[in-house]
Design a protein around this nucleic acid. Sequence first.
DNA 1: CACTAAATTCAAATCGCTTTGAAAATGGAG
DNA 2: CTCCATTTTCAAAGCGATTTGAATTTAGTG
Lengths: 341, 341
Amino acid sequence: MNLKELSEVLGISQTTISRALNGYPEVSEKTRQRVEQAARQYNYSPNRGASTLATGRSMTIGHVLSEATSHELVNPIFGDFIAGASEIYKANNYDMLFSLVKNEEEEDVYNSLLRRGVVDGVVLQAPKISDERIQVLDKLGIPFVVHGRSSKSNANYSWVDVNNRSAFRRATEFLLDLGHRRIALINGLTALDFAQRRYLGYCEALKSRGVAVDSNLVKAAEMTEVYGYMAAKEMLLQKSPPTAILSASMISAIGVRRAVQELGLTLGKQVSIITHDDELSYLNNGEQIPIFTATRSSVRKAGRIAAQMLIDKIDNPNAPKAEMLLEAELVLGASTGPAPR
Amino acid sequence: MNLKELSEVLGISQTTISRALNGYPEVSEKTRQRVEQAARQYNYSPNRGASTLATGRSMTIGHVLSEATSHELVNPIFGDFIAGASEIYKANNYDMLFSLVKNEEEEDVYNSLLRRGVVDGVVLQAPKISDERIQVLDKLGIPFVVHGRSSKSNANYSWVDVNNRSAFRRATEFLLDLGHRRIALINGLTALDFAQRRYLGYCEALKSRGVAVDSNLVKAAEMTEVYGYMAAKEMLLQKSPPTAILSASMISAIGVRRAVQELGLTLGKQVSIITHDDELSYLNNGEQIPIFTATRSSVRKAGRIAAQMLIDKIDNPNAPKAEMLLEAELVLGASTGPAPR
DNA sequence: CACTAAATTCAAATCGCTTTGAAAATGGAG
DNA sequence: CTCCATTTTCAAAGCGATTTGAATTTAGTG
């Protein structure tokens, strides 16, 4: 059933029906009732392509994943982020669209996504320290919001981010307070902005206590379980191993734990661990007592905030850029203890 | 730049341009070159809404998540599945669209998604033993493919699935061969079809050896880490605890391991574990030697297959239903050993 | 060179909606 | 009962592509 047919059935013009359904005031309450009832009865709902064409709005938000970050799709953190975002999209009648993109195509894709009227706005994830995508989006004038920031980008953009630097500074300080001096950092990919900030926070804390940063104690890669395991194992087998380890995600922390246990060491005794905890639905940090001492910040919540920011921006393109810095909690769990003497 | 403008710039009719770009034969190679060059130069690409309207094809595949399964979004297994699917979508110029849906709306949504021309087909995930969605989709005549099956549905539909029953039968038999008699099953949600099949395979193996199924050794819930931990801990603290545990996913297996270790037991000695391993990118089952003995089947591959099936179906609606049953490998890892005497 | 067949190109209709500007209906005042 | 101001409804013009059927070119043949 399309608009024309419905209009014939009802004996009411297409104009009036469209108005009735879209809540315009210039239609009497009586006919609105009638139209709505009939729309339900005949199972009518407007064709998306047609209304996109007519209004220029697609009611769709794009999440573009470049090849370089396409593994993001399989990162459980990503799942929770978009779960949060989609709650908001749903409440506002937006759909969520994913595009995978080859790196070279990146600009083209944003370009064409908007030009082709496929999406009304875009969420950018996993920004690099210097991320050309931000420039591109800015230049194109597409409404967009970044999850995270891009330190070396001087474009003016809206973002939501966790205060990664202060979180990792505090975590490091906490370990220093416990007497640890050899503290390792098992970080995310160095190109990614959040990893850089965590590294900075870590360095700041060490330096403020006069502890030198030892490059043998710093690793960076995609935050898988196996990576956490390998990195921890390697470092723990060094001549002077760390007594504490900072991990960038629950998943690699699980790998770190595996390494620690395999070596016959005990968490919170010979080795302490603090991990960042994104509050992943399937990988909760224990129940009452957290498994790991952790810097905690809900990535799902970040998804909700980003989505709302973007919708606001679409509705009101001239509003000033929005910024939201979320502070992570430092929660005490069972994985930390005083440095072994 | 739209078609009309491009046509004016080139002094060629819109028809010819459209044909040139869409690879129709009735246009000379010379003009095709010219058109393609100009399209690139002026950064033209066709408006999606307009072509959807004209062709009736949206070049978009929908993944609908009902509220009941909306946690699927945060399930890491889901991430790998759609990563596989999206590889295929990309290669075929499809986009991927997600809709979250309230349960009551489910039928409406499928209905309207297709009717409104938003998507050309739908992938159904996490089907229940008896899943009305399949009936609905079938009735509506939307091209769709199911990841998994729905035992009690008599509709005729295309699907990709792992042979869960034989996988869990084999795993159970393997444990029986090792002398285990008290074998626990930490399963996924009972309403889900795959969990049911795994349970059946487990029961079959036990019965064929004359071992009774003990309901104290069977649990079912969403496959989180905490669930694996809680379930394992509770069972291991029973008066007559299991000596082996089957886990439905890597994630809950990690929880099981945590429980085992917390109780001072050793994996592969006092307690053996076999888990199903979906080959998740971020949660690989170790490197050379698998952490866990496992029934292994790549969910990413399943995603690729499902996507290809659906595209074939869209291209050729009258083709017979496709079915693909993937056999899981049983890979030997470090988590199993002979039953303690 | 004229004539027909094949290869190219084009003008116009169509997809289904929104929205503008005009027309019709309603109601209140004089 | 008119007349004018409001309400309410409508016909028609887009939106930007694809595609049909006709018109124009080009090529081949006698």
